[in-house]
Design a protein around this nucleic acid. Structure first.
Lengths: 210, 210, 210, 210
DNA sequence: GATGAATGAGGTTTCATTCAT
DNA sequence: GATGAATGAAACCTCATTCAT
């Protein structure tokens, strides 16, 4: 991890720190220590402090996700295959190993904070996230709409609402995994169940059933 | 609001404060001001401070929800009707008006914090929540299991995973409404769509389709 | 000094601290220690920090000076007697003892800072000072103008420019005294010379000479 | 400004920065940026940092002033003419344009700081200033004393006190101009009034009136 | 029960200063 | 000479918490 740029090391360290202690209890000093960097340097890269660090974690994630998504989906046209690939990629980026589960937790837990930004100087960073987020949402909604038009997906519901269902279901299933990994509180299912359940959700809820 | 007990006024004020600023930035002074109460008084009712206030919001909610749930479900036996009633009640308690959406937001955002409590003196409050939470989860899981046993619900998935799907989907649909209410960022659907979408989710994802 | 209100004790302590170390090197911690007060309390009374403390020292001084001035000048009508009384009062408030010389130094040294305030939340405090300052300036200018109209004072110069001369001369004479008191650098004159010199300045520069 | 030596560019930039923000809030980074130079380079020329930069501004000013003074006064013997020439030169160096008014402001504001230097390694620079300052003061005092001895100037006051009057009056008149230039707060007089008022001060206060 | 001035631990934040390049 | 990323000491500042009233 030490061969990364200091900026990325800070983001990685912050992900861990926030995942473990929550945003409220995360401290800049500990982030710095974890990143093996002086506390002052964090302010060099993220002058607005902790919140900007948090937002930057999110920005970095979405940018990478959207980029990969674009590449992967380029060669797929079938709506079911597309939505499946999308779920697979999200899972890959968030569940593959425990470090990524940390990231998942931070993204899930801190998403609401996005809507509380009042600091004008953070508007830019927020806009970046909004843009990436919309891009992602658009990708999903477009797939759903295409599927509906082709008569493959259920046409009686709004794509936006269906997307929220997929998003929320995935999030909560992942969150259970994280709890399982970090505490030993078994929620009653494992990684395999997540995959199976999401497949079923796509097939039964999303697709049109004759 | 001023005719409530001061204790309840504090919890209401805290809900608003946390919904607006997040737990990290919520301050006791502002909660006190919103509740029209001195900051010292908060410590009379909640000696362990901010975290206890947060937990108490959650406790209050779950207790009321579970109590009503028990009453409402007592006379219903059909699994589909039971799960529908459960969704209806949750929606009633969280979506009915904007104040309740604030509550929804706090519950959603602060759920993860439950797993980070180390203060021994809060173990009791935490246990209360865990008990109420398990009661709620049990209620759902039992309904699902019963439905599976009766051959009404899809028996190929784990009840716990299915419950996460229902839970996450509901949460994210509600969250969209909150965003719409507090910011003017339209996510593309309204309250009616939430109801319709959840109904569809139950019918198609949860139920066994011939 | 301990029987004063804490707020006044803070201002007194800050006067001393700033006089000794300069505004740039004055620290909140030392001001608190000197005032025998916790550092947090300073922010309770002066939420905008060090600058607000500095401004508040100035406000307090001007308010008292203007108030006394009004009382003292009420019963005097002769321009020469009025300007002499004004000088006497200023001297009384700034030179009488070494503590007051500290105040004089702070007022003199930090006056320029007044014109650098950009913080919107300090606009109020700044306005207070401006108001008091104008009141004082008006008092002088009015005396001078009256004297000119009565043919007692030199009518060939602008009252505003003459006032700056009186103001600057007084300031610099006092400043020399402060240097003498705090360091042992003799500037070559004493308190008696200040009085004598200012009298002479009034008589010869201000008054019309036949 | 870019054709100056980097050392002089730094001093000019610092003058501007300090005039605008005050010594307390001036930062090396901003000085560097204004001088179009890296912050590290400032330490090459001024190893003792910000304070040394400040002192160097003052040194540079006094050296030039004293040098020119010596040249200009060499051929003048009449005390009134000499003191008038001195005032004219000071005015030339500080009032001629707005950039010089910045310099005036820095010199005025920062003079007191001279008496608070404790750093041993700056003793040299401080001594330089003291020497130049004394040279200047001596020049004035000598002119005054000569004038008194020749019966041209008022002999009843101490030269040192009279010098403070001249110094303070000049400073405050200039200060008013600065305020006018940087803010739009009119103090009621202009450059011409400054000249006229100082002439009058010399003629009436300094000179012996028959 | 109720208040709010007062405390001070502990976080945030700044920025003068260094040093490898 | 010149750079600017990096450091870390030392300031600022907040706010949960207490307690005399």
């Amino acid at each position: 991890m030490n061969d990364l740029s200091k900026e990325n090391r800070i983001l990685d360290a912050a992900t861990l720190e926030i995942a473990e202690n929550g945003y409220a209890n995360a401290t800049m000093a500990r982030i710095a220590k974890r990143a093996n960097v002086s506390s002052g340097l964090i302010y060099f890269y993220f002058p607005k402090g902790k919140l900007q660090v948090l937002l930057s974690i999110t920005v970095r994630f979405w940018k990478i996700l959207n980029e990969r998504l674009e590449n992967q989906l380029a060669s797929i046209s079938d709506p079911v295959a597309r939505i499946t690939e999308l779920a697979r990629l999200a899972e890959f980026m968030l569940v593959r190993d425990n470090n990524r589960l940390y990231l998942a937790k931070v993204l899930i837990e801190e998403l609401p904070r996005l809507f509380m930004i009042s600091d004008d100087e953070l508007k830019d960073t927020r806009m970046e996230i909004t843009v990436e987020n919309r891009k992602f949402i658009n990708t999903i909604d477009t797939i759903i709409r295409d599927g509906q038009n082709q008569g493959v997906f259920d046409g009686s519901l709004k794509p936006s609402a269906m997307r929220q269902v997929l998003y929320g279901a995935t999030e909560m299933l992942l969150y259970g995994l994280f709890i399982k990994a970090s505490r030993n509180e078994d929620l009653g299912y494992g990684k395999a169940d997540v995959k199976k359940t999401l497949d079923s959700l796509i097939r039964k809820f999303l697709c049109k059933n004759p």
